[in-house]
Structure formats: structure tokens, C-alpha cells
Design a binder for these strands. Structure first.
Length: 251
DNA sequence: TGCCATGTTAAACT
DNA sequence: GAGTTTAACATGGC
């Protein structure tokens, strides 16, 4: 469920609750549910994989982590597993196995909204600056860095690197300028492709590298390796994806 | 049954 | 204290 585009789709479905007043708030999230009863959902905003339900001074911050899910109107899981259930006049929102935090709405101002790859405010220039400032960093880690590419997850990472033919363990500082541009452009572009395919329930069949065994370009075996500081699995083709490194490997 | 995975955070270490 | 490693959490599919 939860890479940025999935959260974006969730927002689309939840926007019907904006302007609505909470009739009841329940669930096993460790927060003061009563605070929201009688209050109106003023805005529903997302930043990468995070969702913000804004109620005046306070905001629910929801993160679906790896296994989170939601449903609208119909409770789809056992009652005790509902993390958050908001009842509105025009429907019900149920959210499961996620992280729910209550935050001060003021803190939203500190978020760099331009880092969200799906946002209209996305700034490729800022992304470039952030990437430039960490030349030692591996591209596989950079793509998963939510401060740089908010919303990008492991699937998008693998597909982007395959598309632009860069080895996941390449270092940012060693990338030619043109490749750096491709990295930034494609991180956003693939996220929109992901969104489109996810909307039509055809995402998986468009995967070229992620979870695949054979390279669709050259037919060679794909490598599966846990790369970088993030130690997330990477699927890549040693033949088609070039390794750019500046510093020598271990002495 | 056991393992793994679209993710993050906090505690426990060096 | 900084930086790093480990553990924890939660669910569904193979």
C-alpha cells in the first residue's frame, strides 16, 4: 500500500470529509480521541508517505508504514484492530496498523513541501542542491531519503534506477551532471506513472526490475542485493546499470 | 510454520 | 554526544 502515490490516492478518497464535523472518534491509537469530537476537518494534506488531517490547532499525522491500510464506510477488519475510526455525517474512515500522532499544526510550517515528488511545489533545483551536498551518498540511499525525495519508496527506487541505467551503489558525487538530472526527473516521473498504474490496479505488471529475475533489456540475470545504509533490497542489472564511484572501495 | 516485505522510530550500542 | 546498529511494531502472502 504505502509509497507516496498510494497515499496520494488515499487522500483523493478522503477529501470528501473535508469540511465535515467529527461525530465520534475511536480506535486503539494512543491519543486523546475526544479532542476531535465536534471539530471540523479543515484540511487534508499529504507530504510523501505522511497524511495530515488538520483540525485547527491540532493535526493527526498518519503514517501507514509498511502494512497500513484504510477503508471508507465499511469496517473491513476486527474491531480491536482499528487504529483510528472517524465518524462523519457523510461516512466513516477506518485506518489500520499505522502510526498516528497528534502534532501541533504549527509544526507543518517546518516541512519542506517542495521535497514531495508528487507536489505541484516540487523543486528539482532544491533536490539537486541536497544531492550535491552529499557526494559520498549512494543513489539507492538518496532516493529513499524522505528529505530529498519525499514519497519515494523501495519499488520506485528500483524502477527509477533501472530506467536511468544507474547502479544502486553509485555515489552521488560521481554522477555526471546529465545523470543527476535524470535521477531527479525520473524520481518524479516514475512516481506519476506509479500513481496512474496504481489507480488502474495494474502497477505490478509494469515492474521491470523490482522483484524480477531477468533483465527485460538484455536477458541476463538480475542481481538482488541489500544495498547502502538503508539495506533495502535492490534489483538491478550489472550489464545495463552503470556503477559510478569516486572514492575507491575499501582499502 | 517460517520467512519475507511498498517503512520508520526509539533504544541500545560504540 | 555523535554516529551506528539493533529491535520493535504490524499484516498478509507464499
Amino acid at each position: 500500500m504505502p509509497e507516496g502515490p498510494s497515499i496520494f490516492l488515499m487522500k483523493e478518497q478522503c477529501e470528501r470529509f473535508v469540511g465535515q464535523t467529527v461525530i465520534s472518534a475511536k480506535g486503539n491509537a494512543k491519543i486523546d480521541m475526544e479532542y476531535f469530537v465536534g471539530r471540523t476537518l479543515q484540511e487534508y494534506r499529504t507530504w510523501g508517505k505522511q497524511s495530515f488531517l488538520i483540525f485547527g490547532d491540532m493535526t493527526f499525522r498518519i503514517h501507514l508504514l509498511m502494512f497500513g491500510s484504510f477503508s471508507i464506510d465499511e469496517q473491513t477488519k476486527p474491531d480491536k484492530s482499528v487504529r483510528l475510526h472517524l465518524e462523519f455525517k457523510n461516512g466513516d474512515l477506518y485506518i489500520y496498523s499505522c502510526s498516528v500522532k497528534l502534532i501541533d499544526s504549527q509544526s507543518l510550517k517546518e516541512i519542506d513541501w517542495s521535497a514531495d515528488v508528487l507536489s505541484d511545489d516540487w523543486s528539482s533545483l532544491k533536490a539537486r542542491k541536497k544531492l550535491k551536498s552529499q557526494p559520498e551518498m549512494m543513489v539507492c540511499d538518496a532516493l529513499l531519503d524522505q528529505n530529498i525525495f519525499s514519497g519515494v519508496g523501495n519499488i520506485i527506487k528500483n524502477e527509477v534506477l533501472f530506467r536511468i541505467e544507474i547502479h544502486p551503489e553509485s555515489q552521488l558525487g560521481a554522477l555526471p551532471s546529465k545523470k543527476l538530472t535524470e535521477l531527479i526527473t525520473e524520481a518524479r516521473q516514475y512516481s506519476f506513472d506509479f500513481l496512474k498504474w496504481k489507480r488502474d490496479f495494474v502497477l505490478k505488471k509494469h515492474w521491470l526490475a523490482h522483484t524480477k529475475k531477468i533483465c527485460p533489456k538484455c536477458g541476463e540475470k538480475l542481481i538482488k542485493k541489500y544495498c547502502g545504509k538503508t539495506q533495502r533490497r535492490s534489483f538491478f542489472c550489472e550489464k545495463d546499470q552503470k556503477l559510478y564511484t569516486k572514492t575507491k572501495a575499501d582499502p
